[in-house]
């Protein structure tokens, strides 16, 4: 009895010790998980705060970089409506981003016009029609496509697509909206394909069987049954594609021609918001108007992203409300 009691009591206390540790760590683990969730919000807030803080002097005015006695202030009307972006002019720097916004939007819209049908079509093929080997090979290749760095895409636009477009269109230079749109489209397609393929796969087979049993052919089944059933995932896929289009920097820097002008056709070169930041931030004098304005462009990009997400939310909600009628 006296021999065994220490071991039992020790075993007992060990078990209790473990229980205590578990009791103690449980809230810590829960806290950690909460922190992981909140970190996304914290990061977004922190980035927004920093970008906004750096851009603020451009709006409120700054004295340091300006000529003595004068307060330099950005003209917001000029900023949003002028197509002239001449930040380094010695006489009169002009900060108008209209042309840059038009550049970003035109390239993004063109790339989506190409990428959305292509991506959705590819996703439908991979998930509904392809079987066995071809399907596996396709999936691997599409994932490989997503892993190509953007600078390589830019290189392809510059070296391969550029002369092709010159030959085909007769324009003197092939670096323009069309070139960047095609390259961006090819970059977005893998994202759109893999996200929307997942969305389509997630639709239960019973939906397919029901559609087929009603006498629908396969295309009708895809169009009438699968697309509505997977609409949220498909929308997410398209939005990720658009997000990639607006945020992409390196490839568009190389493919658009990078010249500030209001385009009149898709064969005109443009410059985008992101490429401007990338190309000029390193050269801008820290603290002067040019520097702060580049951050203001960052805020504009934020606003774009916000509008896209809000629109998507409203679309999804709109579909739901319609369904509840």
């Amino acid at each position: 009895m006296s021999e065994s009691s220490p071991t039992t009591s020790q075993g007992f206390s060990l078990r209790r010790g473990i229980e205590k540790v578990i009791d103690f760590t449980e809230p810590a683990v829960v806290g950690l998980i909460h922190l992981c969730g909140w970190s996304a919000i914290i990061f977004v807030m922190a980035i927004f705060f920093f970008v906004f803080k750096e851009s603020l002097p451009a709006i409120t005015g700054l004295e340091e970089g300006a000529i003595q006695g004068e307060v330099e202030q950005l003209d917001l009307v000029e900023f949003t409506t002028s197509p002239k972006w001449i930040p380094e002019s010695a006489k009169k720097p002009t900060f108008g981003i209209l042309a840059l916004m038009v550049g970003t939007l035109s390239v993004t819209i063109l790339s989506m016009v190409i990428a959305v049908p292509l991506g959705l079509g590819a996703a439908v093929y991979v998930s509904e029609f392809a079987r066995g080997k071809p399907r596996e090979i396709l999936k691997v290749l599409i994932e490989l496509l997503a892993a190509i760095p953007s600078v390589v895409w830019g290189f392809i636009g510059l070296v391969v697509l550029n002369p092709m477009l010159v030959d085909m269109t007769g324009e003197p230079v092939g670096l323009n909206i069309l070139n960047a749109g095609i390259v961006l489209a090819l970059m977005s397609v893998p994202i759109i394909v893999s996200v929307s393929e997942d969305a389509l796969r997630a639709v239960p087979d019973s939906f397919r069987e029901a559609g087929i049993a009603l006498g629908a052919n396969r295309w009708e089944m895809v169009y009438k049954v699968l697309f509505p059933a997977a609409k949220n995932g498909l929308l997410a896929a398209v939005l990720l594609g658009i997000g990639r289009g607006i945020g992409e920097t390196m490839a568009v820097l190389m493919c658009t021609g990078h010249s500030v002008m209001m385009p009149t056709s898709i064969f005109d070169p443009v410059r985008t918001l992101t490429a401007t930041i990338a190309a000029e931030l390193g050269e801008a004098v820290r603290g002067d108007m040019h520097y702060h304005t580049l951050f203001l462009i960052g805020v504009v990009l934020f606003v774009f992203a916000f509008i896209i997400n809000l629109t998507a939310d409203l679309i999804v909600k709109g579909i739901k409300v319609q369904g509840n009628e």
Partner: peptide, 9 residues
Amino acid sequence: FPLPVGLPM
């Protein structure tokens, strides 16, 4: 079918 399938319409 054994399990109900309301089509998404």
